[in-house]
Write a protein that binds this DNA or RNA. Structure first.
Lengths: 339, 339
DNA sequence: AGGTACTACGAAACCGGTTTCGTAAATAAA
DNA sequence: TTTATTTACGAAACCGGTTTCGTAGTACCT
């Protein structure tokens, strides 16, 4: 490696290692003249401090962990952009840890992160996660955690969410207004906060509208797309076939299109569809997809800001313990009249 | 933090720190009996070694850097999955660094990575990158680098690419066979390997087919989507309007759809379209999009495997210095007859 | 002049592991 | 029995920074 170390600088300038270190950190105990000599030599030799050496002493790695189910997902990739832009400004690096919607993976990852590899964690739980014990364990090691989007009630961490209940309510209402009589809801595990809340908004809208709820119209999906496709087709082959669908997460949208295609059901004539999704291409689908679009970038950004405050040991206002950024219903053809 | 350190284990067992360390690393100089006592206590106290302490002495961080332009892109997010799955098996962590297609960012990031934060780097260059000097500088600090997809000729690193020339040739040929007379090519910077190679394949196909090449049919885009949309519209408003388009990167596809929409040109009747893209939803677009689909996951996987060999100081076969994994042309409606 | 305060720096401990080297005791070889 | 070797462990150096503490030299105050 032949790295330029502080020792090398010290030797070159006939100064002690501690003087160099202090000069580089702009300590008041070093004279301006010495500081400038040190800074100049450091620049000339292209000195780059070893981050792990300082980490060892200072207990700060300047790494933050992003623990999410998946990166091939518009919501998460946009959230990553928001997070990364925010933490980078403060000199932090993002370590991305993918759970692939597997709780065992998530546990193992959080355990790993207890060893000081990261100073803090931003997290969205897997769809299989039912308990927050592993997260609390991490927090007990004094690793600050901020949850975003997929949160967990039993974790005393700051949370950044969107208005899942209200926006699902609006989406369902939109379908009702467009004439749907039998609206189905396709979600992930009921343990998952976003799925449960979006189900709640759906139920509220139906109830208020005087529609009766039917468990046959509520489908809970798994992380396995093949099984999900089969389940969706089954849902659409019931005798009381749904004429409207709300899906709770992005990756379910293509499956509904596929299922409808295979069953020769046309969207929106036979089935009207609204999906929670951040797909950039929603408007270009056939038919274009009505979406509830979450503020993914902003949520990542906000969650990162809060984490940075925690890492600075700055106070986090009570109002920031649970932040809600609203989603937007974007009406397109999949929920329309179908001319 | 109140971490369980080796020192704590040593005190508890009345052994020396070095004995604990050796026992944990299964050194032959420690007796089986002692080893098992140490292992048991470590398990009981949930001892987690500080990765940065070992990193400091051993010069190994067990972090690898993934330097890419963007994460909100199907190719890169799939590649990340391939990389992450591969390196995770060997106990490495992925640090993702986004350049946002900005060369200055890319330079700054590689500079940062020279300080030992990562043991190796997997990289796909930005569209603005014209020189590999910054990459060579990193390699000279003995940080192994493997380039994937967007490579650079003047960097003596292992490279994992797809058959850009051949697949672009096939895509163009496909349009020619479907009756296109004036085929346009929309790429990124000509400096970018994939864009240049895909252009070459396009040109080869036209030449072989006896079509003359026209610079008016070759559009070079920027990282700015608005400007790109305007440029694409201008391309489609020429007197010799193209009746076929090949686009070199994923994010250009939606812009072509938009441009055609705004100009009331219908795909594929007025303009037939083939895009290099890993979009999962290509089949659901309106019309469904004919794609050249790159083996993104496999490319990430392969690049990671090579990097791991380099990190193990294992020999990399000459054949592995430049690996080519073929792409697939998936014909859909955007390039068809449009009945 | 004597005492105090401040400035500017160096020596050394420290962070938590890893590794080298030294050594007492046990075992094997001569 | 003596010597050589092996076994099993501990002391200490080390990685590259940071931080505490001590101190020589100068300036300031009575």
């Amino acid at each position: 490696m032949q790295q330029i170390t502080i020792k090398a600088l010290a030797r070159e300038l006939n100064l002690s290692v501690s003087t160099i270190s202090k000069a580089l950190r702009d300590s008041h105990e070093i004279s301006p003249a010495t500081k400038s000599r040190v800074l100049q030599l450091a620049a000339r030799l292209d000195y780059k401090p070893n981050p792990y050496a300082s980490s060892l002493r200072g207990k700060k790695s300047r790494n933050i962990g992003i623990v999410i189910p998946e990166v091939a997902d518009s919501f998460f990739s946009l959230a990553i952009n928001g997070i990364d832009a925010t933490v980078k400004e403060k000199g932090y690096h993002s370590i991305i840890c993918l759970t692939h919607e597997d709780f065992k993976n998530e546990q193992a990852i959080l355990k790993e992160l207890q060893n000081g590899r990261v100073d803090g964690v931003l997290m969205s739980v897997s769809s299989e996660t039912t308990s927050g014990k592993h997260i609390r364990a991490l927090m007990e090691q004094h690793v600050p955690v901020v949850l975003f989007d997929r949160v967990l009630a039993d974790v005393p961490a700051a949370k950044v969410i969107t208005d899942d209940i209200a926006s699902s309510y609006k989406a369902t209402q939109h379908l009702l207004r467009n004439g749907c009589k039998r609206i189905a809801f396709i979600g992930l595990s009921q343990q998952l906060s976003i799925s449960a809340d979006r189900l709640r908004g759906y139920e509220n809208a139906l109830r208020e509208h005087g529609n009766k709820l039917s468990s046959k119209h509520i489908l809970t999906c798994t992380p396995d797309p093949k099984k999900n496709l089969a389940a969706i087709k089954k849902l659409l082959q019931q005798k009381d076939r749904p004429d409207g669908i709300v899906t709770a997460v992005e990756k379910l949208a293509p499956l509904v299109y596929q299922a409808c295609g295979q069953l020769s059901l046309s969207i929106p004539q036979d089935v009207k569809l609204v999906c929670f999704s951040n797909l950039e291409l929603a408007g270009l689908l056939n038919p274009s997809l009505t979406t509830v679009t979450q503020p993914a970038y902003e949520m990542g950004q906000k969650a990162a800001e809060i984490l940075l405050r925690l890492l600075d040991s700055k106070p986090v206002h009570k109002g920031d313990m649970q932040i809600m950024i609203p989603s937007r219903l974007v009406e397109r053809n999949s929920s329309g009249e179908g001319n």
